[in-house]
């Protein structure tokens, strides 16, 4: 149901993302097959599923990088597949995306990486304000000394923190994390997971986290969604799903 501005009215004002009957196939491979999902304000939801089950495709559909075949993706009142480029850019100020590979620009320093989204989204602030914002997010992730370093000079964990800082600099209401702890050692992975929770509390951010890492799931998840056969197969807290008797769910926690 759409209002006069073309926005889809959400049933619950606390729901920031609402996905209904989402379908996406690549050739004969049906990745999302009628997926339904809701994300509440301030909630951290982890999407668990096997490799190739469509978890990354799901969040790329949410941010508008992949066009779904069918279904609605209501993000903060807008149906993403219906948005034009300008509207998508406006939506992406409010929705951050942390890439699995960090996606830091190799040719830019940490400062330039952090300034890039500010400048590109036409967020007009003075040089001093931009600098203050950059230093604030760097302090939040504990790396203010890296401001003039190149991404190639940073360790994997540091790069992940800088990528998170770049996502946070626009002060988004929602962050989509694509496997945030993949490729990190368990200690660094735990640090990143704790950092994600800290940022959620500090800025009241809602998050969808794609992860295989059960330690990360345990630390970050308010709720876990199992993406199996392209559908939302099961949902519940980590403890509830850990005790589940269903064989498909159980295999993830064994």
């Amino acid at each position: 149901m759409k209002d006069q501005k073309g926005h889809i009215a959400t049933q619950d004002p606390e729901t920031v993302i609402s996905i209904r009957n989402l379908y996406k196939a690549f050739g004969d491979n049906k990745v999302l097959n009628g997926f339904n999902f809701d994300l509440k304000k301030g909630e951290n939801v982890v999407v668990l599923g096997k490799s190739g089950s469509g978890k990354s495709v799901l969040i790329k559909c949410i941010i508008g990088l992949i066009q779904p075949d069918k279904g609605t993706i209501n993000v903060l009142g807008d149906n993403v597949p219906d948005l034009n480029t300008t509207q998508l850019d406006e939506m992406r100020v409010k929705v951050g995306f942390l890439f699995q590979s960090n996606a830091l620009y190799d040719s830019m320093t940490v400062r330039e990486n952090l300034e890039f989204p500010l400048r590109r989204h036409w967020i007009h602030t003075s040089k001093e304000e931009v600098n203050e914002l950059v230093m604030e997010v760097l302090r939040n992730v504990g790396l203010p000394h890296t401001v003039d370093m190149m991404p190639s000079e940073l360790s994997g964990g540091m790069r992940k923190r800088i990528a998170l800082a770049r996502t946070l600099i626009l002060k988004p209401e929602i962050i989509l994390y694509d496997e945030p702890t993949t490729g990190l050692d368990p200690i660094t992975g735990k640090e990143i997971s704790n950092l994600m929770v800290d940022m959620q509390k500090k800025y009241n951010i809602s998050s969808i986290i794609i992860s295989h890492d059960l330690n990360c799931v345990k630390i970050t998840a308010n709720r876990v969604v199992m993406l199996i056969d392209g559908t939302c197969y099961a949902t519940g807290t980590y403890e509830e799903l850990e005790r589940a008797t269903d064989s498909k769910v159980k295999q993830f926690f064994e």
Binding site: K60, I63, L65, T85, D89, R92, V93, F97, F99, Q100, S101, N102, A103, L104, Y105, D106, S107, F116, P117, R120, H121, W122
Partner: peptide, 21 residues
């Protein structure tokens, strides 16, 4: 090579997400 490595490390997608064509 530059654009290829940007593509495989998702930097081109990151640019899209950052309001850049």
């Amino acid at each position: 090579a530059e654009l290829g490595s940007m593509k495989v490390t998702e930097q081109i997608d990151a640019m899209d997400v950052s309001g850049t064509n």
